[in-house]
Amino acid sequence: MKILLILLILIINFAGTICAGEIKDRSEEIINSTFSGPVFNDAKKFMIPVELLSEVQKKCKQKFYKNYVYYWKIEEAGSLKAIAVLDNVYGKSMPITFMVIFDLDGKIIRSEIVKYREQYGGGVSSDQWNEQFKNKNSESSFNIGSDIAAISGATISVNSVTKGIRKLTLIFNSIKNSL
């Protein structure tokens, strides 16, 4: 009995450590693993201009979680190399936190689920599924079934994350121009 309790405490302690500052840590870990020796600032807020926000929402048929997103400027060997953007979309009932890293032409280098909070639909976290967004930009097609694979048991998450990523491709230029 005592051994079980000690084990439980250890597991929860360990898990609690992971939870603390999880989103920030996980985001920076993703950037670090994408580039060799990147230099990046702390996350900054980008307030989405009202007109752009409304235009993109209409185009993608999905609202932004907030009227701002977070971004990181990523430098390599002293020059700006990429921009990482962090946002949320709603899954069936909980937010899904995701990151998209763009090159300076607005092409996706990598997309990644930073935090998933539900039992169902977690397949959107898989590397293979996210790989499909690589090299897409604001002009690309994001149709589910033909361009982006559906995931059995994750219909709502697939729709939400795909629209969320497309939204970021459409505000990328505005973020870049604000730097």
Partner: peptide, 8 residues
């Protein structure tokens, strides 16, 4: 197993 896109 859901590790491949489209597969469960």
């Amino acid at each position: 197993y859901t590790g491949l896109p489209g597969l469960r």
